[in-house]
Design a binder for these strands. Structure first.
Lengths: 209, 209
DNA sequence: CCGCCGTTGACCAAATCGGTCAAGGCCCCA
DNA sequence: TGGGGCCTTGACCGATTTGGTCAACGGCGG
């Protein structure tokens, strides 16, 4: 790709990246047209091909960028939690969700794009990239659980499936809305907190409530 | 539409309907080509236009069919539960999920299609149809809750958000797999049951366990 | 033998596809 | 004042795909 892309102002880079991720997130690689991407970004199609030699190159760059962004966000959130010595399962997960929702605001369409890309039927994504995403997802969960204080849970509660349950719920909420305004995102977060509170209230030993 | 469509053997009707729902479920109305639908069904495109005058007519028929099918399934499951006098929240919900997963086997792509259609940006779906789906969803939840024995829950547990939490999880699981074989679907169901068991174990009063 | 019916491949004009190219506008340095 | 980059664009390309049509095929019951 044309390295001059990075000389553009950050907002313009984001505009192009976000538009492309939203479009690629709505359909398969083949069905997504470069025209629609350009139109969403309010930019000429020729400009896209000025910075990216190919539709495929744009796609692969976006995937790389998305994964890196996820990692960056995750690291920041874990570092933050670690800095404050936070070891509480729900509070840390809450921070995570908050950061995630913030990311949705900054990069609407990123999650959907990554999911799409992961399940993309065509072989546009190499197995190597696919594996990379796998690793990121698994490592984040493990790393998260290893730092938490799991003694607070009642006996018989498996924190691992609890993470999955809450993550599924959060992603489901994210998937079913096109929320972009801060108020909408805040509403989603409040709903998430209702679930988390209910679980915390009933899955923690009484002495930790 | 051409009423002779219903003279076809049921399997052939299902073949066409399912293929169309899968394809429409993967992309927007505009981006989904009649060619791909025909190809998936192993049928000539001309046949499609023999039974449905339009791409749009096919789409609207499918939506109607999908909603009716959902209703039919829901009624059957509720009647079954009512017949056995079942009033337990988790057992009834479990039956519901089981039936739902069965439907996924019989109609792969139905759920995704309905969701897509609901959030479809173009105005192919009239507000009236959209409202109809809304009503169905809300009514089923309310009707379900009104028949359940909610005294078993500990104080402070809101069954309504519990339904939503479990539904979100189930739909999330459904969305992230392309599971079609009975074994895969069974695996999903087992995962669902892990969540439900954990919640039941901790949200019910002890005397009801 | 006919007529009906489900089915098809070939075909159509129109739209859309990914990608190119010459040139316009703008700012900075000489 | 006159270039020389640099970001940006509209117009354009041939190739493919689009939704939709149509004449005709084959099998089957009468």
């Amino acid at each position: 790709m044309n390295q001059k892309f990075f000389n553009l102002p950050q907002e313009r880079q984001d505009l192009i990246r976000n538009s492309a991720m939203v479009e690629f997130g709505e359909g398969s690689f083949k069905k997504t047209s470069t025209d629609s991407i350009a139109k969403r970004a309010g930019v000429s199609k020729a400009l896209l091909f000025h910075y990216f030699k190919d539709k495929r190159e744009l796609y692969l760059y976006l995937f790389q960028y998305a994964i890196d962004e996820c990692m960056r966000i995750f690291d920041r959130h874990m570092l933050k939690a670690a800095y404050f010595g936070e070891t509480d399962f729900f509070r840390t997960l809450e921070i995570g969700q908050k950061v995630k929702m913030d990311m949705v605001r900054r990069h609407p369409g990123l999650f959907r794009f990554v999911m799409r890309a992961y399940y993309e039927g065509d072989n546009v994504l190499t197995p190597k990239l696919r594996k990379k995403l796998d690793d990121v997802l698994r490592e984040t969960t493990d790393s998260f659980l290893s730092r938490m204080d799991l003694h607070k849970f009642k006996d018989g509660v498996d924190p691992k499936i609890l993470v999955r349950l809450l993550t599924l719920a959060a992603e489901g909420m994210l998937a079913e809305t096109k929320a972009r305004t801060p108020e909408e995102i805040n509403k989603l977060f409040q709903e998430y907190q209702k679930y988390a509170d209910m679980l915390r209230q009933n899955l923690y030993k009484e002495e930790y409530l």
